[in-house]
């Protein structure tokens, strides 16, 4: 159960090696958090830094479970298993996602579909399984890592952008569908975040970092917001960009 300060006792991350998600966990974990579950594809790889995390997140116990976003048939069972082990899921972060290489994705049908399987299809099945559990337990907060890339899809990385647009629209609808169940969904739309995933790329204007995203998420959760942009001004920038006429939009030098 979350306590009166909104502090979760249990935190579960899907896409448990995501730097942004781990920054959020570090920000939200308190001495009253007992369990942190990181569901990730590469459990062996994650095992290497589990000790560091254990030390950082103590007294919460960190555990790793194997999670493959594309094996959507396994998701309901996985969510049930986690709940059996740690009890109520107070806070769940969906952070599984791949960026891919935009040039390849633009022309490779199979690679593009695979990216959708992780970013969108996996998100749908995972979040729905979590939402079902939330309905049963009468409470729960779900944080979905979306992206401004999905707000108006740019030609430079339209496959990735479209996958996030799908996830984002789904998460909005899910949040509305959960109204009155005690559960809630927070959609996070960061701009360019400097992480391993974006290493070697040239930062876009209004770039941010995982800790800033984490700070914004913490504020949004206690303020009961439903959608946030990080940094905040992206909201206003994209509300303009979204309405630009096509000929102008296509000519903008957006990478």
């Amino acid at each position: 159960m979350r306590n009166a300060m909104g502090e979760p006792q249990t935190i579960v991350v899907f896409g448990g090696t995501s730097e942004i998600a781990l920054a959020i966990v570090r920000r939200l974990v308190t001495p009253r958090t007992s369990q942190v579950v990181l569901a990730c594809r590469d459990v062996d790889g994650a095992e290497r830094y589990r000790e560091t995390l254990n030390a950082q997140l103590a007294p919460a116990a960190v555990s790793l479970v194997s999670y493959e976003a594309r094996s959507y048939a396994s998701h309901p069972e996985l969510v049930a298993e986690i709940a059996d082990r740690v009890g109520d899921l107070d806070l769940v972060i969906f952070a599984a996602g791949v960026l891919g290489r935009a040039e390849q994705l633009a022309v490779d049908p199979v690679a593009a579909a695979e990216l959708f399987e992780v970013n969108t299809v996996g998100g749908v099945s995972t979040c729905l399984a979590v939402a079902n559990r939330f309905r049963e337990q009468g409470h729960g907060q779900l944080v979905v890592l979306s992206s401004v890339a999905g707000e108006r899809v740019r030609r430079a990385n339209f496959v990735y952008g479209a996958s996030k647009a799908g996830l984002d629209a789904f998460a909005q609808g899910l949040g509305d569908a959960l109204e009155g169940t005690g559960a809630s969904v927070l959609i996070v739309r960061p701009g360019f975040v400097t992480t391993r995933m974006t290493e070697g790329m040239e930062p876009a204007p209004l770039a941010t970092d995982p800790d800033s995203v984490a700070e914004a998420v913490a504020a949004a959760l206690s303020g009961r917001k439903r959608t946030i942009w990080v940094p905040g001004p992206l909201r206003w920038l994209f509300s303009v960009l979204r309405h630009l006429p096509g000929p102008i939009w296509r000519r903008l030098p957006l990478k």
Binding site: N3, A4, G6, G138, H139, G180, G182
Partner: peptide, 11 residues
């Protein structure tokens, strides 16, 4: 919620 009106849950 309780009398303190802190987080709610549904029942």
């Amino acid at each position: 919620s309780g009398w303190g009106r802190t987080p709610v849950s549904v029942a």
